[in-house]
C-alpha cells in the first residue's frame, strides 16, 4: 500500500492508503480528524467539505492520490490559538445550526466562498451553498451568518489584495513546502 504525505492544517502526515481511498476516510479513520462528517459518500450533501488549496472540496469523493500535493484545511484547522475564524464566529452568534451535523461543511464552504466573493448576494450564497444540505431547515439563518461573516472579513481588510481577494486570517499551511 503506498504512502502519501498529506499537508493538513499546517502539519505533514504520512498515511498508508490506496490511491482511490477517499480523503474523508483518511481524515476520519487514520488521523481522527472527524470534524468533516460522513453524510452521503457521493459528494451530494457537503457535510465533508474541506479546503484543498483554498477551494471547497467534497472530501468523500476526493481521492487521496489527487490531493497529495495540496494544502488541506479542515474545520479543526480554522480557529487560531482558540480564536474562532470569523465565519465560525458568525455561525455561532447567529446560531446558524440546529443539530450541527452540516455545520463543519457549511463553514468550510463559506470560507471558500468569501475568498472569491467578499460581498456575496443572497443569490451568490444560494448558488454556492446549494451543494450543501442542511436537513434541519436552518437555511435562512445560514444566509444571515454568511452575510455577517462577510461584513466582519471586509472590516478586517477593507481593500482587496493583489489577487483580488480580500484578506482573512491566514489559514495554516506547511511552511517548509514550496507553494505550487
Amino acid at each position: 500500500m503506498p504512502t502519501y504525505t498529506l499537508r493538513i492544517n499546517g502539519t505533514a502526515h504520512d498515511v498508508q492508503a490506496d490511491a482511490d481511498d477517499t480523503l474523508l476516510s483518511v481524515l476520519r479513520d487514520d488521523l481522527d480528524l472527524v470534524g468533516a462528517r460522513y453524510g452521503c459518500g457521493e459528494g451530494q450533501c457537503g457535510s465533508c467539505t474541506v479546503l484543498v488549496d483554498n477551494r471547497a472540496m467534497r472530501s468523500c469523493v476526493a481521492k487521496v492520490s489527487a490531493v497529495a500535493k495540496a494544502q488541506i484545511v479542515t474545520i479543526e484547522g480554522l480557529a487560531t490559538n482558540g480564536v474562532l475564524h470569523p465565519v465560525q464566529q458568525a455561525f455561532l452568534e447567529v446560531e446558524a445550526f440546529q443539530c450541527g451535523y452540516c455545520t463543519s461543511g457549511m463553514v468550510m464552504a463559506t470560507v471558500a466562498l468569501l475568498r472569491t466573493t467578499p460581498s456575496p448576494t443572497d443569490a451568490d450564497i444560494a448558488r454556492v451553498l446549494d451543494r450543501n444540505v442542511c436537513r434541519c431547515g436552518t437555511h435562512t439563518r445560514i444566509v444571515r451568518a454568511v452575510h455577517l461573516a462577510a461584513e466582519r472579513l471586509r472590516a478586517v481588510t477593507p481593500s482587496a489584495g493583489a489577487d483580488g481577494r480580500l484578506g482573512e486570517p491566514a489559514l495554516p499551511q506547511v511552511a517548509q513546502e514550496a507553494q505550487r
Partner: peptide, 15 residues
C-alpha cells in the same frame, strides 16, 4: 455547547 459545533469538536456517534 454551541462552540463545539462550529469547531467540529462535538463527536456524534459516527465520530
Amino acid at each position: 455547547d454551541g462552540r463545539r459545533f462550529v469547531t467540529g469538536e462535538h463527536r456524534y456517534t459516527p465520530d
